[in-house]
Design a protein around this nucleic acid. Structure first.
Lengths: 233, 233
DNA sequence: ACCTGAACACCGTTCAAGT
DNA sequence: ACCTGAACACCGTTCAAGT
């Protein structure tokens, strides 16, 4: 019963890097990047700023750590059991990231900007690895694997990022349907001479299903990969 | 010679929304998003903050305006003469944005985050229009044009954004070659069990040419589009 | 109509001091 | 080793006042 004897018990109220990161993710989820503040973080954790700086170098590192934690858990979901096909594997990875960004919209800016800010501790290798293994299994020649995997990764980050914006468009209180209606309407009111295409697809934009559209883009790239690099089976 | 008589002359020292935006772009180019401050902006323009707020609602609007200005000029370069083929047109648009983000790295985060923040005044339609026209010329059926154009746009934004990070990685004083060397080295030191793919492509990553790699991704997507939607010629 | 500049609330970060 | 909390420099924004 001495303090030393129950070393393995959790001191639930102790501050730790992990608890700080968890709280940071919560704040980011609740109010976006602007919602993560050392003031509210200290309040939430019932400490002073100095305590946080003991565990974390600065706000940038905290954001990186939060990003890494969320991405890691997003990519850990799929690979528990091997996919039926490389294509399925790629779709699983893609949807994992898509859903993560949908749940944590602040991830979009984070991934677009901080990615590989520093070579190590970056989240890029983790994503590239998950995609690359499937690309390799697809039979793409080694010399083209980096290109193919990168293309998929860039599409995923670009698309999911875009979607995060559509999701929480102008604050959490704006309905998604209303937002798409407004956007579609705005597109239709563009100058016919300058924007013939955009006006023409305004209806498709309003009617589209995010996930399906996202997967259709993946399918397009997969078709390109297998066309340029036909399986040698 | 009365003030009214030379109404058409430029008062070069007068403040205007345009001059503010120009100065903002300069500051962003010089020091990234952190470099754009109302303090240094007022100093540069020799005014007070109130003067700027007279022309611009807030910092967000200023960032949007800067983004719009840069994107507009980037997309205006290509379409002067019609491209030899739709594929060439798509490559021109893609490279225009790629180069713009390369020149103005802060654009990456801006495009990833602010894109279509508000339906109107957004820069999305401008990009989608430029791509969509070429997709339409490619013979893609109307019902799939939005999907194809979106896929291209998402890839372009994702890839160019990633590239912006690689370009100015850890500050302007870090050499690009050094950075790639360090990243490649770090990739090779990853755990062999967890990162077989990333380790295997570390050399390709270091050796790759950004523009060529970017265009190879475009080629992959174009191949996918023409495979899924073969021209009816 | 357009600009000035002091003032406000808030931010990330530091650091001497405690335990 | 870990935490406290006052303090610092800086930020975006406002607004009464000038012209």
């Amino acid at each position: 019963m001495s303090p030393r004897a129950r070393k393995s018990e959790r001191r639930t109220d102790a501050l730790s890097r992990e608890r700080i990161i968890d709280a940071a993710v919560e704040l980011l989820d609740a109010a976006g990047e602007g919602g993560l503040t050392f003031r509210v973080l200290t309040e939430r954790l019932a400490t002073g700023p100095g305590a946080i700086y003991w565990h974390v170098a600065n706000k940038g590192e905290l954001l990186d750590a939060a990003t890494e934690a969320v991405v890691a858990s997003a990519l850990a979901i799929g690979p528990v059991e091997p996919p039926a096909s490389p294509q399925d594997g790629i779709r699983a990875v893609a949807l994992g990231l898509f859903d993560a960004i949908d749940e944590h919209p602040w991830l979009a800016a984070q991934l677009a900007t901080q990615l590989s800010r520093s070579p190590s501790r970056s989240v890029t290798p983790r994503i590239l690895e998950s995609i690359g293994r499937q690309v390799s299994a697809l039979g793409v020649p080694v010399s083209s694997q980096f290109t193919a995997a990168s293309a998929l990764m860039h599409y995923i980050l670009g698309a999911a990022g875009q979607n995060a914006v559509n999701g929480r468009a102008a604050g959490p209180d704006v309905d998604r349907g209303e937002f798409l209606d407004a956007a579609s309407k705005a597109w239709k009111e563009l100058d016919p001479d300058d924007y013939p295409f955009t006006r023409a697809v305004a209806d498709q934009m309003r009617a589209h299903d995010d996930r399906a559209e996202f997967l259709a883009g993946i399918a397009l790239i997969l078709a390109g990969i297998t066309t340029v690099h036909p399986p040698t089976a």
